[in-house]
Structure formats: C-alpha cells, structure tokens
Design a protein around this nucleic acid. Structure first.
Ligand SMILES: [Mn+2]
Ligand SMILES: [Mn+2]
Ligand SMILES: [Zn+2]
Ligand SMILES: [Zn+2]
Lengths: 152, 152
DNA sequence: TTGAAATTGATTTTGATTCTCAAAATACAG
DNA sequence: CTGTATTTTGAGAATCAAAATCAATTTCAA
C-alpha cells in the first residue's frame, strides 16, 4: 500500500468512510495522470480493467480526492471540470495552448505578490485566485510533434 | 437614438439583421448595469415594462452584444454566465468578494507584463487570459452596508 | 461471523443554455 | 403606403455535465 492510499485510508477512517475497491482503483488511475476529466478517467478505467464502474462513482471519488487535497478542480473551458493531480505540486497557475491541448504549469512569485498588493489596495483579503493564460506555441511545429506523439 | 443603439443598428444592417423592440429594450437595460446574468436581466425587464419577453431572447441578444463588443461573458462561479457591460471600459480583471457580491474591476500593467514574460519563457504567444482574485472585504462592516444599500 | 452503516451503479433529475418551429415583426422594393 | 421575403420571437423541448435517488451490494468493527 503506497503513501497516497495510506493518506486516503487515513481520511476515510477519520470520517468513518470505507476503503472500497473502486476508490482504490480510481486513486491509482488518477495518480498516473496530470490533468483529466471524469469522463476520460472513466473511459480509461473501463478499458483497462474488467471492473464495471459507474460514472457517478468516478465523480464522487474524484471529489473525495479533492477534499483530501490530492486533487483540485479546474475549469479551463467553461463546459467541463478538469481534475488536477496535485500530489507533489505546490500552488501553480496554467498556460494553456488553444491549438494542441498542452497545459503548462508555472508559478510566478512576482505575480502573486502583485495580486496581494492589488487586493490590499482595494481593502480585500485574498482567499484564492485563478490565473489562466491562453495562447499557442510560438513554434507550431512543436505542437504538431506533440500531437503526433499523443496520437491526437 | 443614442450612440450604442447606433452601434447596434450599424452592426445589424451590416449583417442583414433587424432592429427589434426587444433588442432595443435589452440593450437599454443592459447599458444601465455593470455585471449581470441573463436571468437577472430578464427579471428586471419583466418587472419594469409591460413587455412580454422570452428568456431565450435575452440570451440571444446578450450574445449579440458580446459579438459587437458591448458585452463580455465572465464565469466567476462555474455555474452561471455573467455578462459584463464593457462600454467605455478597457481590458480589466476582477476582485470578487465571497461574502457580499461586490465585484471590483482593476488593471495592473505590471501583472500583464509579467504574464507576457512568463508566456514567452515557455514559448507561448498569448491570445487572452483570465485573472480573478477572490476574497473578502477587510472591513466586513462595509460589506454589510453595501448589502443593505443594494437590498441583498 | 454478523449486521449496521456506507457505497455502488443504473437511472432519473437538475439547471443553465441552446435549439426548434409556427406565428409575428421588420425591412425594403415597388 | 403595401405586399412580401426574411428574420425574429417565445414557449417549450433538447442538451449536457454533474448531482441526486434508491435498491442491492460491500465493508468493517465488534
Ligand atoms: Mn495543474
Ligand atoms: Mn468587469
Ligand atoms: Zn497563482
Ligand atoms: Zn489582465
């Protein structure tokens, strides 16, 4: 049982919840990806294992992982939720390619500082923020390579 | 006929569309607000005038105004679209109070510059971005006053 | 091992937004 | 002005991701 399963189990015990096969399967699959939708994860799990799994369970478990802090919801396009595997990641923002679906994570202490400054200037205390930069790779060739590599 | 109705009419003629009473009513109502949902604008118009108006028409017209550049869609919470009246506004980002529903607009050339820098560092050309700062008024009293004033 | 409590998954529901389509309004040529 | 082609409207249906239902199944502590 690896560290994350331990973390999950610990949380479940504390809340009098149960460690089910589904929850373990979903956690394992989620840990292998970076950013993924519930639908896509469901597809992956359904293909891989012989296990039958309801989409509702995927949603429920993914939300559970967000409560624990293993995942975080993102809303890059305004239609579907993307779950961000944030194990071993600290706070970060995103750079999103409109042509390929590359997502780059970055952090800018300078920007974070300026955000705080701006908030203070308006009498606000910040609790969180959302910063997303949309654009495309300057070297479009790279996009194509990436697309070829991932089979899109 | 004021300037904005002129702008709307101009666009409509160019696209062989028609200037209807509904479109004028919606435009007028929209110009009086700052940030609003389609539902809320529909409520306001329904109460004010004797005019019957379908919600679908509100959505259609608001989207039309966005095409012209009079409005812009925002997605502060991930459930409903807020239409931003951007007449006489240049690009700006938002500071949103989680306690009252105050929305403050700001611009930070310094942040914008750093965003470009960050994008360049990763080989990206930016097309647009989203920066939203969530928090609450330091002086909670102010929130309450504001709530009282606006009747929320 | 046993049974109370939690979970699952098939299905239905929700809620914002868009779509459909017959009836009404608009624009423009004559 | 008037007739007519074209667009728009509004009521309701359709859509879609996500959440809620609920009977059947699984978990786990005693
Ligand atoms: Mn991320
Ligand atoms: Mn604004
Ligand atoms: Zn940040
Ligand atoms: Zn900005």
């Amino acid at each position: 049982m690896n560290k994350e399963v331990g973390r999950l189990k610990n949380y479940l015990v504390k809340k009098r919840l149960k460690l089910t096969q589904q929850r373990e399967t979903i956690l394992e699959a989620f840990l292998k990806v970076d950013h993924i939708t519930a639908e896509e994860l469901h597809r992956q799990i359904s293909q891989t294992g012989p296990q039958r799994m309801g989409l509702a369970t995927i949603y429920r478990t993914l939300n559970l992982l967000c409560e624990i802090g293993i995942g975080q919801q993102r809303h890059f396009d305004d239609t579907r939720t993307i779950y961000d595997n944030v194990i071993n990641k600290k706070h970060h923002d995103h750079l999103i390619c409109n042509k390929c679906d590359k997502i780059i994570e970055f952090e800018s202490p300078a920007i974070e500082r300026l955000q705080e400054e701006m908030a203070a200037r308006h009498g606000f205390t910040l609790s969180n923020h959302r910063l997303e930069l949309y654009g495309h790779c300057i070297d479009w060739e790279k996009c194509r390579d990436w697309q070829r590599a991932t089979g899109r």
